[in-house]
Computed example of a mutant assay.
Amino acid sequence: MDITRSDSSDIQQILSILNASKGDNLTAEQRETEGFTQGTLAAEKLAAIQSESGIFVSRDAGNSLISGLAMTSPGGVAKNGPALAAYQKVRESGVAKAEKIFLYGPVSVRKGYRGKGILTQLLLHICRTLQADFALGVAFVDKENHKSLLIHRHYPMTESGEFTLNGRDYVIFTFAPRAVLAFYQKTL
């Protein structure tokens, strides 16, 4: 598997993966077991994220098809919505300086590639790549997204709080890139 930062030629595939993982066509039970991504991102917003800390993508070696993706952005660029709420809550806790916090997510893997460790490899790559610039990663998960909660609880992340926004409840997960790398160094 090859993991790289995405570039402008990847935007349409990224949009396709994100749109497919929204789960709009799933029943409530399917959304619960399969998970879903939130929000809508336009190509222009993806390009902006690519120019910051980046969108990381996985591909089978020698294949142009993106199998999974994970977005990152400096916490300070969050302007509204759950990303801003999660960032502010973590920043107010004082666990890391504002400029040392990055947002992690959304993440998504194509349906046919799920369960193969792609998210773990993306997380490890992100931690290796961003550890010099950032001390803390922050993710937030809708409490109705049981699959995503299970996945995040599987990783060496800390549940660092909760918040409610627009009638939706969220769990905040934080992780230190160096600590994640050390954890997997011991277990791999």
Score class of each variant (00 low, 15 high):
residue 67 S to Y: 07
residue 78 A to F: 04
residue 70 A to I: 14
residue 68 G to K: 07
residue 174 T to N: 07
residue 46 L to W: 12
residue 73 S to F: 13
residue 107 V to T: 15
residue 132 A to L: 05
residue 91 R to Q: 12
residue 170 Y to C: 03
residue 36 F to I: 00
residue 94 G to S: 11
residue 115 G to T: 05
residue 115 G to H: 02
residue 44 E to R: 05
residue 188 L to S: 14
residue 167 G to F: 00
residue 75 G to Q: 00
residue 149 L to F: 08
residue 88 Q to S: 10
residue 5 R to C: 10
residue 5 R to V: 04
residue 177 P to S: 09
residue 46 L to M: 15
residue 36 F to M: 09
residue 16 S to P: 04
residue 163 F to S: 03
residue 24 D to V: 01
residue 188 L to D: 13
residue 14 I to P: 06
residue 25 N to K: 08
residue 163 F to H: 01
residue 50 Q to R: 08
residue 27 T to Q: 02
residue 22 K to V: 02
residue 157 M to P: 05
residue 45 K to L: 13
residue 40 T to E: 15
residue 73 S to C: 11
residue 103 L to P: 04
residue 59 R to V: 01
residue 128 R to L: 01
residue 106 P to N: 07
residue 117 G to D: 01
residue 91 R to W: 09
residue 91 R to F: 08
residue 113 Y to F: 15
residue 120 T to F: 03
residue 131 Q to P: 03
residue 102 F to N: 08
residue 67 S to Q: 14
residue 112 G to P: 04
residue 157 M to D: 01
residue 24 D to Q: 09
residue 127 C to K: 02
residue 34 E to R: 14
residue 134 F to M: 11
residue 155 Y to C: 04
residue 68 G to L: 09
residue 74 P to L: 06
residue 89 K to Q: 14
residue 22 K to Y: 02
residue 20 A to C: 09
residue 110 R to N: 07
residue 81 G to F: 11
residue 46 L to V: 10
residue 13 Q to W: 05
residue 185 Q to D: 14
residue 4 T to H: 08
residue 61 A to F: 10
residue 49 I to V: 15
residue 148 S to F: 08
residue 54 G to Y: 01
residue 83 A to F: 14
residue 166 N to F: 07
residue 113 Y to N: 10
residue 18 L to H: 15
residue 52 E to D: 14
residue 152 H to V: 07
residue 127 C to D: 13
residue 175 F to N: 02
residue 48 A to E: 15
residue 137 G to H: 04
residue 85 A to C: 08
residue 23 G to K: 01
residue 185 Q to W: 03
residue 133 D to K: 10
residue 172 I to K: 05
residue 65 L to R: 12
residue 80 N to V: 09
residue 78 A to C: 14
residue 19 N to R: 14
residue 106 P to W: 09
residue 62 G to I: 03
residue 31 R to N: 10
residue 56 F to H: 10
residue 144 E to N: 10
residue 27 T to N: 02
residue 185 Q to N: 08
residue 108 S to W: 04
residue 156 P to L: 06
residue 6 S to N: 11
residue 118 I to C: 04
residue 98 A to E: 12
residue 86 A to D: 05
residue 25 N to H: 12
residue 73 S to M: 15
residue 140 F to Y: 08
residue 47 A to P: 03
residue 5 R to F: 02
residue 92 E to Y: 02
residue 184 Y to E: 05
residue 65 L to I: 09
residue 83 A to H: 12
residue 183 F to M: 00
residue 119 L to R: 01
residue 117 G to A: 00
residue 42 A to D: 13
